[in-house]
Amino acid sequence: MKPHLVLACHITGVYDVNRNTTLADDSYELVRAWAESVADAKLQGIIFHNSFSEETCARYQNAYISFVRITYNPAFNPNVYRYFVYRDFLAQYKGAIQGVFVTDVSDVTLAQNPFIHPLFTANPGALFCGDEPKTLHNEWMLAHAEHLRGQISDYSAYEARFASESLLNCGVFGGAFPVFYDFLQQLCALHSTYNHSNTTAYTGDMGAFNYLARTRFNAQLQHGVPVNTIFKAYENERMDCWFRHK
């Protein structure tokens, strides 16, 4: 196992609430740009999946990109279930990994190696993540957090306290292994405890991520440039950030 990893998850056959469709099985085009960008940076990328054929995996795996088949647990939305996949996988390699980033797979590409950037190397206790050009207090997040607000006793207080802070985006986050894995374990615990009975139209992934990051890791947060480009600005040629997110 190499010391730095970039992980992503691609689950099909389940209705995608973000795209309002069900993703097709065995469609490599959905992950091609991500895989090629990671390989171009000579980093080790792993795609966890439930539908790529053996032929597709054999065709596209290389010295940098590998595929790991998983069995999807429908108790959680795919946006949430991926965190359990990452947690269980990384638990096997605690002593071997120095840094990790996990990202969305169909709308994120890597622009430069984050693990050698001075900001990353000088801040081993930092949690790096994407953000958006809007505040936590916005109409979408208020709706997204409906379920968690009713489950977590101090959720409303957190929303009020951080209302004017930048909205963090869980489509890109990472750090040195100790802080990253600590955050990931706590994120999974939040979902296991409070999000398993979510019957709303929203997944709760952004709500849980922002809540945990702001209430327990706020002093360690590094977000925005150079971690990510402007969300949904489609800055596809930009090379001064680590990741491009739409």
Rank of each mutant, 00 (worst) to 15 (best):
M1H: 04
M1C: 05
P3G: 01
G13M: 06
Y15M: 04
A24T: 14
A24C: 10
D26A: 05
S27R: 12
L30C: 11
V31G: 03
A33S: 11
A33C: 03
W34T: 03
A35G: 11
V38K: 07
A41K: 13
K42F: 02
L43Q: 09
I47P: 03
N50G: 08
E54L: 12
A58K: 08
A58T: 08
Y64P: 00
S66Y: 00
R69M: 12
Y72F: 15
N73V: 01
V85F: 04
Y86P: 04
Y86M: 08
R87D: 15
Q92G: 09
Q98D: 14
G99Q: 04
V100Q: 03
V102G: 02
T103E: 01
S106I: 05
T109L: 01
P118G: 11
A122R: 14
G125A: 14
D131Y: 02
H137A: 15
H144F: 10
E146F: 00
L148S: 07
R149G: 12
G150S: 11
Q151G: 07
I152M: 13
Y155R: 10
S156R: 06
S156E: 14
F162G: 00
S166R: 14
L167W: 08
N169V: 08
V172F: 06
F173G: 01
F180R: 04
F183A: 09
F183K: 05
A189K: 08
H191C: 10
N195G: 09
N198H: 11
T199A: 11
T203V: 13
D205G: 03
G207S: 15
R214A: 14
L221P: 10
V225K: 09
N228W: 03
N236Q: 03
R238G: 05
D240N: 09
D240G: 05
D240C: 07
D240W: 04
H245D: 14
H245G: 14
